[in-house]
Design a protein around this nucleic acid. Structure first.
Lengths: 137, 137
DNA sequence: CCTATATAGTAATATTATAACATGATGAGC
DNA sequence: GCTCATCATGTTATAATATTACTATATAGG
């Protein structure tokens, strides 16, 4: 297996590719156990197979964990380089998840961190509410 | 039991007061099961007693849930009126949790939401990294 | 008193995540 | 090609977090 370097597309193992495929094929976030069920036909038997692949995919920046849902989404952020600072808007009605990069908000948070002497490694930003469509209805 | 109105200090039930006491007496976040263990001496027997009290306390804005820790903290934010938009910096070394109100960052997120037609009900903002003390060491 | 609502107790179970240990594949250096 | 270190995998069991379902009790308002 070739090593992963920053800015490379890491080559994925079979399990990692299967898990990523499940996520990219889904139109929304999936829990680890939902992924497990999707991949039983491919030979998956145990949660750890999913969790281990997810750990790597998150490391690679190809998948994000949604903390407030205990679920995972493939990164839809084209050309995104700062995978540790994506933000998500989650519709509580229809489940739609929209990824975006809140650069300005991140700058404000960095300012706070600087003033506080806090060395920021990762941010979790998740908005809950109603998407445009569900608001209209 | 008197009703809770916005801007009131709601009167708490016995269980709610016990759970809040456990959290204010702690110098950091507690999980629901940690709270349960602390309150066994007071007669708590089951997780649901804790979860039900936590639900109410979070409703009241007196307790926050830290999504990335599956844990809870008493609100330390004096005079805070926007309990749905607190932010937290979590030190991954020592566990210190610092609550703050990221007004500017929230404005940026509100701008994004407005442009997107997303009706924001609640935000989760959690920073992970190293606190000042741990950075120094 | 009657009833609607909120709170509470308890047992069982569902959901999410990890520990522990054995096995197999791969690549670097010799 | 062999050896070793490393990483990925498979499997079982278990831990940690959260909810469902059902019952009972209290209380405020009519």
């Amino acid at each position: 297996m070739s090593a992963h370097h920053e800015n490379d597309q890491p080559s994925l193992t079979k399990n990692q590719a299967l898990v990523l495929g499940a996520l990219t094929g889904s139109n929304g976030p999936l829990t680890a156990y939902a992924i497990l069920d999707l991949l039983r036909a491919d030979g998956f038997r145990a949660p750890l197979q999913v969790y281990r692949a997810l750990d790597k995919l998150v490391d690679f920046g190809m998948v994000h964990r949604l903390e407030s849902l205990n679920a995972f989404v493939a990164c839809r952020h084209p050309g995104c380089t700062s995978h540790d600072s994506a933000a998500f808007a989650i519709c509580e009605q229809c489940g739609l998840v929209t990824e975006f990069t809140p650069d300005k908000a991140l700058d404000m948070l960095k300012d706070w961190a600087k003033g506080e002497g806090f060395q920021m490694a990762k941010t979790t930003i998740e908005l809950r509410g109603l998407c445009r469509t569900c608001t209209a209805h």
